[in-house]
Amino acid sequence: MTSITPIINGVAVTVEVPDRVTLADTLRDKLRLTGTHVACEHGVCGACTVIVDGLAVRSCLMLAVQADGAAITTVEGLSKNGKLSALQDAFRRHHALQCGFCTSGILTTMHALLLEEPDAGEHRIREVLSGNLCRCTGYIPIVEAVLEARAAYAQAESGA
């Protein structure tokens, strides 16, 4: 067992973890942040994506002990004050989800992308999205939602 203190959605949390346990399982089972989903456990599907120190990463490919001191954003950290973020709201309006199981990982991935590249075009969005599998939507409504949400990120960046 090792004691780690990641900063999760802005709050430092100290937790004891066995060395062999992944970050994904720790978030889910120890910290009860079950919005992060596990769908393949071998780094292909993207459902478990969280943002670690600003970068979207697959939390099933990272051991919890590696996350000591890291700033982590999960899907639970995307909305503020109980209000959907611009990205989440765009997803709802475009019906960019059906069963919702892949959605958390897609939201975190696209959030990380738009923070860094608020001007990402459709091609770039699709390229990045190709690291997340969705079985329900055919991806088209997701791309539409992300394209629309860009404006909010551009605005935030320009400080408007």
Binding site: S79, R93, F101, T103, S104
Partner: peptide
């Protein structure tokens, strides 16, 4: 009419409860 999905707010905020989330 294309009403927004009632399901979505929970699912978009990570509050969905799938069987693996039950404790």
């Amino acid at each position: 009419s294309a009403v927004d999905r009632i399901e979505d707010e929970r699912l978009l905020t990570g509050k969905g409860t799938y069987v693996g989330d039950l404790n």
